[in-house]
């Protein structure tokens, strides 16, 4: 920060005029790190209200106080309120004798199919029997893409070709898995724009009529301000377009898989935007194009990169 660091004796109150310019600079820095404008604004506004009028300790710098408050807020936002342990849940389902399922959803080209294959590889490494289910019945090559992964990983693929109703492919796949002793089914879906009503309706149907254990939203680190809109609408439309029969128990985004972490250097702001709007935990981070390139979120790393 370029502002002169100001020191004061203990007991004085922080006022708006002191804080505002520092927060303005911080906001610019967060946006430069690819945090959506709306989120950067909201974050800075809440820091402002929380600090104005606060007494400050002797010999503390205003900059230090503000930066510390921002850092704390970032850690708080990125630390999930509800822990989601995919492996443990899958293991528990197995010991209960039922199939565990994850549906991968998101906009076009973010890495759903690739990261689905990585998750398969990871679960296999823990001794689970995994099956892939090809419910992108629209995009050219989508079925072959999944078949290639299934072959490489040496696991079964359930597919019914193209132009089939994805929702019924998923249903048949889950039934097939239960009958053949599979532990986990990973359901691939076609990419879609969050404003595309017919496609969002089809997704709501697939999710609600199959009731997977986890609805996993896949979002890429490259996305800018659209991150906010994507999460908001995938969440809301799944609920709004829920078939009447399931209206008492609508499903929505349960967790997030962040991809392409390796392509943005320290511009990691999209992660913050996504978690801020959805409150959903980040359960996987994609860090490359190989099966091993799947990580858990390190909140500390993210916050360091954002504050640097």
């Amino acid at each position: 920060l370029s502002q002169a660091i100001r020191f004061a004796s203990g007991g004085t109150e922080l006022d708006d005029q002191d804080i505002a310019p520092i927060l303005e600079t911080l906001k610019g820095r967060l946006m430069g790190k690819n945090v959506a404008e709306e989120i950067a604004s909201k974050l800075c506004e809440s820091i402002r209200t929380s600090l104005v009028g606060k007494k400050r300790a002797a010999l503390s710098s205003i900059n230090g106080i503000v930066e510390g408050a921002v850092e704390d807020a970032l850690v708080r936002i990125l630390t999930p309120k509800k822990q989601t342990d995919v492996l443990r849940e899958a293991m528990r389902a197995k010991s209960d004798g039922r199939v565990y399922s994850i549906v991968f959803i998101g906009v076009n080209g973010v890495g759903k199919s690739t990261n689905l294959a990585k998750v398969a590889h990871w679960l296999m490494g823990h001794g689970l029997k995994v099956m892939l289910c090809a419910c992108d019945t629209f995009r050219s090559g989508a079925v072959e893409q999944l078949r290639t992964h299934a072959t490489r990983l040496g696991i079964p693929l359930f597919e019914r070709g193209y132009e089939k109703d994805p929702s019924s492919v998923a249903r048949e796949g889950l039934k097939h898995a239960a009958a053949t002793g599979i532990d986990v089914v990973l359901v691939d879906t076609a990419g879609r724009m969050q404003d595309n009503e017919p496609l969002m309706r089809a997704l709501a149907k697939l999710v609600h009529s199959n009731d997977p254990d986890l609805v996993l939203f896949v979002g890429e680190m490259l996305v800018g301000n659209d991150a906010v809109d994507q999460l908001t609408k995938f969440h809301q439309k799944l609920i709004d377009l829920c078939p009447v029969a399931k209206a008492s128990k609508p499903r929505s985004v349960d967790a997030i898989c962040l991809t392409k972490y390796d392509t943005v250097d320290d511009k990691v702001g999209a992660a913050l935007s996504m978690v801020y709007v959805s409150g959903a935990p980040i359960v996987f981070v994609g860090t490359g194009q190989s099966y091993q390139d799947l990580r858990k979120l390190s909140v500390k790393n993210f916050v360091d990169q954002l504050m640097r």
């Binding site: 690739t114 050219s140 090559g141 989508a142 999944l146 290639t148 194009q289």
Partner: peptide
Amino acid sequence: TFRAGAFDQLKQNATK
């Protein structure tokens, strides 16, 4: 030659 299914994707598109 890297992405899984890349050639099938292009082939199906080109055929269409």
